[in-house]
C-alpha cells in the first residue's frame, strides 16, 4: 500500500491523472470521475436501481464490449488477409489451418459478430418495451437505430470477405436487392460492386467498408450515443 501511495505521489503519476490527492471525501471521489475522459460512460452519480442487472440486462454494454472484441480480433485477422482473388479464400483457410490460434481468433470474430447482432436487437427491444425512447431521448433512439443498421451492414460486408460460395451468392442476392431501389438502383449496385459483377473491386470495396468506413462511423456514433444517455438524464 505504501508503495502505491508513493507511486501516486510521483511527478509522473500526477502529470497523467488530473485528480488531486488524497482522495478522502465524497467530493474527491466525484472529482475522479469529473476529471476523467470516461465521464460520459460512467457518470459521477448513478441511481442504485440503474446498476441492477434486471434494469437494463447490461445489453448496451455487452454490445459495446462485443464491438471492442470485434475490433481487436478484426485487426489481428487483417494481418493475415489480403482482399484479392484468389488470395482471400486461401488466406481464410490459412488462418484456420496454418496460423497459430487462427481458428480461435476467426471464430471469436465470427461468434462475436453474430452475438452482437443479437444483443443490439435485444437492446432495442428492451429500450422499446421500457418506453426509454420517449422525450427527451428520441434523438438517442434515432442514433440507436442507425447503430443497428451499421451493425447489420458490418455483418453483411464482412460476409463477403472469406470469398467462398456462401458469401458470393449472399452478396449477389444482396446487390440485386439494392437494384430494386427506384431510378438509381442500378447505379448504386454498380458503385457498390465496382462493376457489373462481383470481382476484385467488389472485394476491396467491401473490405474498406468493413474495416475502415463503417467501424469509424460506428465508433463516432457510439460515443455520441453514450454521451446523450447522460445528457438526457441517465439510464431509463
Amino acid at each position: 500500500m505504501k508503495k502505491i501511495e508513493w507511486l501516486m505521489n510521483t511527478k509522473i503519476w500526477r502529470s497523467i491523472f488530473r485528480t488531486k490527492l488524497p482522495i478522502s471525501t465524497n467530493l474527491d471521489r466525484s472529482l475522479v470521475i469529473f476529471n476523467s475522459l470516461t465521464l460520459h460512460i460512467h457518470p459521477v452519480k448513478v441511481r442504485e436501481k440503474a446498476i441492477c442487472f434486471s434494469y437494463t440486462f447490461y445489453l448496451g454494454m455487452i454490445s459495446f464490449f462485443l464491438f471492442v472484441i470485434l475490433i481487436v480480433t478484426g485487426i489481428l485477422l487483417m494481418l493475415y488477409y489480403q482482399p484479392a482473388i484468389p488470395n482471400a479464400y486461401q488466406n481464410m483457410k490459412d488462418i484456420q489451418y496454418v496460423v497459430s490460434n487462427g481458428t480461435f481468433l476467426r471464430n471469436m470474430h465470427r461468434w462475436s459478430a453474430h452475438l452482437m447482432v443479437f444483443t443490439v436487437f435485444l437492446h432495442m427491444l428492451r429500450v422499446f418495451f421500457k418506453g426509454a425512447y420517449k422525450p427527451p431521448r428520441e434523438f438517442n433512439w434515432i442514433i440507436g437505430v442507425i447503430l443497428l443498421l451499421l451493425t447489420l451492414l458490418l455483418s453483411y460486408t464482412g460476409y463477403l470477405l472469406p470469398y467462398d460460395q456462401l458469401s458470393y451468392w449472399a452478396v449477389t442476392v444482396g446487390a440485386n436487392i439494392v437494384k430494386y431501389v427506384p431510378f438509381i438502383g442500378t447505379k448504386i449496385r454498380f458503385l457498390l460492386l465496382g462493376g457489373n459483377q462481383i470481382g476484385d473491386y467488389t472485394l476491396v470495396r467491401f473490405y474498406v467498408l468493413h474495416c475502415v468506413i463503417l467501424p469509424s462511423v460506428m465508433l463516432l456514433l457510439v460515443a455520441l450515443h453514450f454521451w446523450r444517455i447522460r445528457k438526457d438524464g441517465g439510464l431509463l
Binding site: F190, G195, N196, G199, D200
Partner: peptide
C-alpha cells in the same frame, strides 16, 4: 472517382 472506367470483366 468511385465509378471505375476500366473493368476486367
Amino acid at each position: 472517382f468511385l465509378s471505375p472506367n476500366v473493368l476486367l470483366e
